[in-house]
Design a binder for these strands. Structure first.
Length: 496
RNA sequence: GCUCCCUUCGUCUAUCGGUUAGGACGCAAGGUUUUCAACCUUGAAAGAGGGGUUCGACUCCCCUAGGGAGCGCCA
């Protein structure tokens, strides 16, 4: 029996640049990188590409962590285990110097203006706009003096570079289309192209999983690996996510930052599921838990084509997770949203706001907790749950919508008076106040009045919910509780 | 302009040379019903076009069309 050498443990990485928020496309890349490592017993590391000082603010970095924490769980990537690329600049520069010494890189004194001219000329002649290699084999003369220079890779010019991509398959680039890239800027700082290669190597990354806008960079980076004598990692280039109209997903399409989806009332589990399923499939499975994904994810079943983001489908996945979610967790999520977004004053009477909503949530915790099981069965998002619960936020006397008010004519008000009496008598204490008992009493009341059930239900609904639509009447009454329900009823009733 | 990638119902996808091309979302109709929802049932809906290869192509090859990405001292 031949002993197989232990397979090299898989190391993947997610390397976002802090641009202000975590885009769903990047979030999915994070997911796939993480899942691939998990499914293969490896690890996925986080590296923040913050070499562009102009764009990398602390706030932007916080937002990345916030987005990842919500989607993946706060413990997946602890901040103190994160690699910050900016901390490695000395190492990057040293590697560039090595390449200079070995003749795999050279100093280029071309000015930005020169390069501009070069590119424009190439474009007008129908050639690909590239560096023309004017300093490739030229030693700086005395006239260069202390002139600023960049360090460029002396890239191979003949032959082809082949990438065997896990998603895209075999991709070939002619070496002459892969430019002599800048490794070190004239201020001595590393470019992205150098930094990724050095950091990926130093971090022991075996599999680079990223968006397919980087596909050609794999070719370029492989040339750097080659020049350095390092083994290049394996690649998987994921197709991009498009908006519903097929164009690149942007703010114009609505929410694009993962954090935005939380504020729309999407559950983190649902977002995870939807994103995993967008571009990856496991037969006909639509509902894929975090655990299942971490067990069965692979790159073979990643789709090669770009996918469009479908908000409706996301909502339907969300609906599934909402139904299965823990009530207390949902109440906490409702509280988060009310605190963050406030409440629609139209639904709660004049002057309602986040403070009022929060106050009400705290004051009537039991009321809301008993309502959550009802709400989660009917609402697609947490935001909708809050809207459906509008009646539970308000205090007596509750505001009544115009349409509902119209229903509360004299006849109906006296009907409500009789109902108030009947209910109060029949269900004389809190223990008797159950949905079943409430239903039985109201039905027999309607019968006694010789009225169809709806004739009683609608005025009753108007009086306790303040509007024509609400969750099931018996649920509304039950969660409001005996005292509050009867009081609301009495507020609108007229005794004759 | 040049280089590279992609193309199954409206959308996400299954199929890995032989299927009545399956599922999900959405949509439509019906049912249930105290309102709005939810829920249940049923239905319509697809291999971009053209050439090959093959006994047989959605599946393999080529061309065309359409879409996307890249072409920075950004990442």
């Amino acid at each position: 029996m031949t002993q197989k050498p232990p397979a090299k443990p898989i190391v993947t990485r997610f390397a976002p640049s802090p641009t202000g928020y975590l885009h769903v496309g990047n979030a999915r890349t994070a997911l796939f990188s993480y899942l691939y490592a998990k499914a293969n017993g490896g690890v996925c590391k986080l590296r923040v590409e913050d070499t562009d000082k102009a764009r990398s603010t602390d706030d932007a970095i916080d937002k990345i962590f916030e987005g990842l924490g919500w989607l993946m769980g706060a413990d997946v990537w602890p901040r103190d285990e994160t690699v910050f690329q900016s901390k490695n600049v000395t190492r990057h520069a040293a590697v560039a110097q090595e390449m200079l010494d070995s003749g795999n890189a050279y100093k280029c004194f071309a000015t930005p203006e020169e390069l501009d001219k070069m590119r424009n000329a190439a474009r007008t002649e129908g050639r690909s706009p590239r560096y023309d290699g004017r300093w490739r084999d030229r030693a700086p003369g005395p006239e260069q003096g202390n002139a600023p220079f960049v360090v460029r890779l002396k890239a191979e010019q003949d032959g082809v570079t082949v990438i065997n991509d896990h998603v895209q398959g075999r991709v070939e680039f002619r070496n002459d289309v892969l430019d002599d890239l800048v490794l070190l800027r004239s201020d001595g700082t590393p470019t992205y192209m150098l930094a990724v290669v050095v950091d990926d190597h130093d971090m022991g990354v075996t599999h680079v999983i990223r968006g397919d806008d980087h596909l050609i960079n794999a070719g370029r980076q492989n040339q750097i690996y080659k020049a350095l004598g390092w083994d290049a990692p394996e690649y998987a280039h994921l197709p991009l996510i498009h908006g519903p109209d097929g164009a690149k997903l942007s703010k114009r399409h609505g929410a694009v930052a993962v954090a935005d989806f939380r504020d729309m009332g999407i559950l983190s589990d649902a977002m995870f599921n939807y994103l995993v399923r967008l571009g990856w499939s496991s037969g006909d499975e639509e509902i894929i838990s975090r655990k299942d994904a971490a067990r069965s994810f692979d790159l073979d079943r990643v789709n090669k084509a770009a996918a469009r983001f479908d908000y409706a489908k996301l909502e339907s996945v969300n609906r599934h997770y909402l139904k299965a979610a823990d009530d207390k967790m949902l109440l906490a999520e409702m509280t988060y949203l009310v605190g963050k977004l406030g409440l629609d004053p139209g639904s709660f009477g004049d002057g309602a706001n986040a403070d009022a909503g929060l106050k009400s949530l705290r004051a009537h915790e039991q009321r809301f907790l008993s309502l959550v099981p009802v709400l989660k069965e009917r609402s697609p998002t947490v935001l909708e749950m809050i809207k459906d619960a509008a009646f539970a936020f308000v205090d007596r006397p509750i505001p009544i919508e115009p349409k509902a008010l119209k229903l509360l004519n004299d006849d109906n008000r006296s009907l409500l008076g009789r109902l108030h009496e009947a209910l109060g008598d029949a269900l004389s204490n809190d223990a008797a106040w159950t949905t079943e008992a409430i239903e039985a009493q109201i039905r027999s009341f309607a019968e006694a009045e010789d009225l169809g059930f709806g004739k009683v239900a609608q005025p009753l609904r108007a009086s306790v919910a303040g509007r024509m639509q609400s969750p099931g009447l018996f649920d509304v009454l039950y969660c409001l509780g005996r005292a509050e329900s009867l009081a609301r009823l009495a507020d609108q009733a007229k005794s004759d």
